[in-house]
Design a binder for these strands. Structure first.
Lengths: 153, 153
DNA sequence: CAATCTGCGGTCCAGGTCGTCCACGCGGAC
DNA sequence: GTCCGCGTGGACGACCTGGACCGCAGATTG
């Protein structure tokens, strides 16, 4: 993860479709070098994929909310996680610090639809309580690039 | 967003490097069709980018935490958002329902490093209080694909 | 100190791909 | 009936890819 790697990532983040050759030209290095760096970045796990980024909003799910789930003692998180994984509107879920707590990001087609999503989530008996927080505005969209800039090594 | 679009997205999500021609072959359509669909998906905003996905963990930031910030009345969210945007470890931030609340996802190199990050966040005087929750395990990694499958229209 | 290794730059090649046209046929909408 | 949008198949030239080879430089090792 030296400076060349960083510039490579930034370049592809800015213009994903340029291709290896064009990238190598822009950075003033040989194509083989750029290619080797990209392969290494992928192998080391820094670059996890090149998949298309989808916008839930454009897909018809403009409402985003964060759920904090309180898991019933002894119920185990796995059952809840499996249940959440079966709900497409659940985009993300983590176990977090706190007494049996779990956190999930969900989206919905409207505020009314959010109720339906939450009800689906709560269908799992292992969930004791659920507090919902709705995202009103995006101040910082999901980003990792600045982190790559600051990463050392 | 018909079935062809969906299969196209799923295909590229599974194998991002295949190229338009190969994709059209797999789906049994003409290349021009696949290309037109991809262009349309990008134009409609469903596909927001093809950038490399970076793993904060692989970049040396294995600790993830969620901050709930209480914004001082009248301070305005913008100042806080600008401040957060200047911190690379802040990967995401939203204003949320609740009295002047804001939510942010941060990463850090270690639990000790998390303290440094939080201190940097709290350097902004517009923030009144900050509660931190640490993610222990990823139950569902960030995903949008299932949503695309369920999206209608 | 010298041998070795690794990373990098430069170059070559064949094959495949890309973006972009076009004409044509099909179905639905007016 | 006629128009329009959409998908198809084909074609074009320009370009890119993956792979290979070589030489050089610095770092590492014995």
């Amino acid at each position: 993860m030296d400076d060349l790697d960083r510039r490579l990532i930034e370049l592809f983040a800015a213009e994903p479709r340029i291709g290896v050759l064009e990238a190598s030209r822009r950075l003033g290095v040989a194509r083989g070098t750029a290619q080797a760096r990209l392969d290494k970045l992928a192998a080391s796990g820094v670059v996890t994929g090149w998949g298309p980024d989808l916008s839930p909003e454009a897909l018809g799910f403009p409402v985003m909310a964060f759920l904090t789930l309180e898991i019933r003692q002894g119920a185990g998180h796995d059952a809840v996680a499996t249940h959440l994984a079966g709900i497409a509107e659940v985009l993300e879920a983590y176990t977090i610090t706190g007494a049996g707590d779990m956190w999930a990001r969900v989206v919905a087609q409207s505020n009314a639809d959010l109720q339906r999503v939450i009800d689906r989530v709560l269908a799992e008996p292992g969930i004791e309580r659920c507090t919902t927080v709705i995202a009103l505005a995006t101040q910082i969209p999901h980003r990792v690039l600045p982190l790559a800039r600051s990463a050392v090594s």
